[in-house]
Amino acid sequence: MKTIKPIAKIDLAFSMLCLQHRFNQPVARISKAISHTGDGHLYALFGALAWAIGGSHGSNFLSAGLVAFAIELPIYWLLKNSFQRRRPQELSPVLTAFITPSDRYSLPSGHTTAAFVMATLIGHFYPDCYSVAFMWAALIGSARILLGVHFLTDVIIGAILGASCATISMQLLGVNV
């Protein structure tokens, strides 16, 4: 546990830097909008559109997405409930969250995990869109920090988990990775 303490200190200091500045209210408004794009509705829309207009390529994208989320969700819940890491505002009385999170613990960031599942799949199946998808996923992760509901390491671990689950799903389905 000693090796985690320095990381936790850096996480808390970074959160304080992100949340205690005079522009935190306008930044939070923008961050809410960005974070909302990672609530899940767009993932279903992307999958449905790919399936409807993408032929077998779109069907493979949808299948890989369904398998990736079937892998990701249990791992996400297992990690979240095993680590039981408290959220930033619970660790410092000077930090305020700008939204109410949908669950109790912070590690890993579920929004970031899901966004990186989608970014990885989009990058593989639609390479021309990879840069935009990756930036969108990174913005979702950043927004979660700027809203005060996640630490930097929650987002980093979420990104790794999401990309890994997407890659594993494509390997399981025999999609050339």
Rank of each mutant, 00 (worst) to 15 (best):
M1A: 12
K2W: 09
I4M: 14
A8Q: 11
I10D: 06
L12R: 05
F14H: 04
F14S: 04
L19E: 00
Q20W: 02
Q20I: 09
H21D: 13
F23W: 15
F23H: 11
N24P: 00
P26M: 14
P26V: 08
R29T: 08
S31H: 06
H36R: 08
G40I: 03
Y43G: 09
F46S: 08
W51Q: 06
G54R: 08
G54A: 09
H57M: 03
G58Q: 03
N60H: 14
F61K: 05
A64S: 15
V67M: 10
V67C: 04
I75E: 06
Y76H: 11
L78E: 00
Q84C: 15
R85S: 05
R85V: 02
P88H: 04
E90S: 10
V94N: 11
V94W: 05
L95D: 03
L95E: 04
T96R: 15
I99A: 13
I99W: 13
P101L: 03
S102H: 09
S102M: 11
D103F: 14
D103Q: 10
Y105E: 00
L107F: 15
L107R: 05
P108G: 08
P108A: 12
S109T: 00
G110Q: 01
H111P: 05
H111I: 07
T112K: 04
T112I: 02
T112D: 03
A114G: 06
A115Q: 02
F116H: 07
F116M: 01
M118I: 10
A119Q: 09
T120M: 14
L121D: 09
I122S: 14
I122V: 15
G123D: 12
G123S: 12
F125W: 03
Y126I: 02
Y126H: 06
P127V: 07
Y130P: 01
S131C: 11
S131A: 14
V132W: 12
A137P: 07
A137D: 08
A143S: 14
A143R: 00
R144M: 07
I145F: 02
L147F: 04
G148E: 00
T153Q: 09
V155K: 13
V155Y: 13
V155H: 12
I156L: 15
I157Q: 05
L161M: 13
G162N: 10
A163V: 01
C165V: 03
A166C: 06
I168S: 13
S169I: 03
S169D: 03
M170H: 09
M170D: 12
Q171S: 12
G174I: 02
V177Y: 11
